[in-house]
Write a protein that binds this DNA or RNA. Structure first.
Length: 422
DNA sequence: TCTGGGGTCCTAGGACCC
DNA sequence: TCTGGGGTCCTAGGACCC
């Protein structure tokens, strides 16, 4: 048996942990650039705040109900996530971190009372981190997702644990569950299923295998098996190495100035290179892309990307910047209002696996020591304190908007929570 | 004026190999 | 007149997830 543990309204809940004055009140968290609402607690959802709509459109509603609004504070959420995982690990040795706010757990057996086990998980996480979680228990990951969904639907909210351990429960859940709520079925596929008259998970699992295989590929067929109760996805206790890492962020406002966009690109390359070195990998391939703002129908649109195979795989910031720049120059077209630039690294290898260049047999990247010093300085004194000149000095002209940021309570000594006694 | 970022997996089709 | 089959690797694009 597996369990899926997920934190309720994770980002909003993290903010509330450190703001007792907001307990029981509506709270939302905005996406990067303070663009749209990406998390809302129960109180905020009950007002009917639409997720994924631009924040400026919902502003009147937010004001009317005195909703507290935060920018995304990823250092805080990342650290709270770590605490949740560490807490769960004390109760179950075998665990897969699935996302920032979810983990799959192998339930130790024998566990005669699954419901009680779920409650125990909830109590401990809440006691140790202050965060509320839901628990879905079932024989496969996809059914755990279904159970977790059911847990949220339950009227008696204090329970927040749902178990699918027998056939009648499974059947009842699938009869009720709309296909668009199935894990792995998104908007497009849901629309195709609706066209075929399939609206509930129960109807989906009664489609012929051949049709599912043909129309929804092997992914769809695995999904069907999982809902039938046959596991298709193992618990991944050791996280697999990443296949690609990237950084791509929208600008605070649209940009036409090529030199500014280049500076932003150099900045992002530096960020992604730090991630790369932290994961102890070198990259053999680099992709650069640019795009205009697709929401501005009145603007001419352009997007393009280019993938470069690097002559020698590397983790060296100046080297990566150089190639990113070469790629950028090939795809950049003047005269558009750009919204975003980004870089992705792939063909990630362990450093000792590198194939040397035939005509440049230097086995060591030239700047290894420099990169080490740069990473140390930036860890101690803050991101990009030390950087390459190509990243420039005009970040204020393109950086993303974060006007409602909360303190990084748990990761910065100068931003600790303060308590005043009168 | 203001609409997220970081990922994964799968397939089709072309180039190329023997 | 008749013009292969089996395989790999690469890339682009689609769909999905949180």
């Amino acid at each position: 048996m597996l369990a899926l543990v997920d934190v309720n309204s994770f980002y909003a809940s993290c903010e509330q942990v450190f703001r007792p004055d907001l307990w029981g009140k509506p709270v939302v968290v905005l996406s990067n650039n303070d663009g749209c609402i990406i998390a809302a607690n129960r109180e905020a959802k009950s007002i009917g705040l639409p997720m994924w709509r631009p924040a400026f459109e919902t502003l009147p509603l937010l004001r009317k109900h005195q909703v507290t609004v935060f920018s995304s504070n990823y250092p805080l959420y990342g650290d709270m996530s770590r605490r949740v995982i560490e807490t769960l690990a004390t109760l179950c040795p075998s665990l897969e971190v699935y996302s920032i706010d979810e983990a799959f757990i192998q339930i130790p057996h024998p566990t005669p009372d699954l419901e009680a086990y779920g409650q125990q998980l909830r109590r401990r996480v809440h006691q140790w981190t202050g965060l509320p979680v839901g628990v879905g228990i079932a024989p496969t990951k996809t059914l755990c997702k279904v159970a977790s969904h059911m847990a949220k639907q339950q009227r008696e909210r204090s329970r927040n644990v749902f178990v699918i351990a027998d056939e009648p429960t499974r059947v009842a859940c699938l009869r009720e569950l709309p296909v668009e709520e199935i894990w792995g079925i998104g908007k497009r596929i849901a629309a195709r299923l609706h066209q075929r008259g399939v609206h509930r998970a129960w109807e989906f699992i009664h489609l012929p295998d051949t049709w599912v295989r043909k129309e929804l590929t092997v992914t769809g067929l695995r999904l069907k098996r999982e809902l039938e109760g046959t596991p298709q996805h193992e618990l991944e206790v050791d996280p697999p190495a990443k296949q690609m890492i990237g950084t791509a962020k929208s600008f605070g406002h649209n940009l036409e100035d090529e030199s500014l966009i280049r500076e932003a690109l150099a900045w992002y390359v530096a960020e992604v290179a730090v991630k790369l070195r932290r994961q102890k990998r070198i990259a053999g391939r680099l992709t650069v892309f640019v795009e205009t703002n697709p929401f501005r129908k009145e603007d001419r649109q352009y997007c393009n990307q280019i993938q470069l195979k690097l002559p020698v795989p590397t983790d060296d910031t100046p080297e990566l910047c150089h190639h990113a720049r070469l790629g950028f120059d090939q795809i950049f077209r003047p005269g558009y209002r750009y919204k975003k630039v980004g870089v992705w690294l792939s063909d990630l290898l362990r450093p000792h696996a590198v194939q040397q260049h035939l005509f440049d047999p230097d086995p060591q990247p030239r700047h290894t020591r420099l990169m080490q010093v740069m990473d140390q300085v930036n860890t101690q004194y803050g991101k990009a304190t030390l950087r390459t000149a190509s990243a420039g000095f005009r970040r204020a002209d393109w950086k993303l908007k974060q006007e409602l940021l909360s303190p990084r309570y748990t990761t910065r000594i100068d931003e600790l929570m303060q308590i005043h006694a009168d």
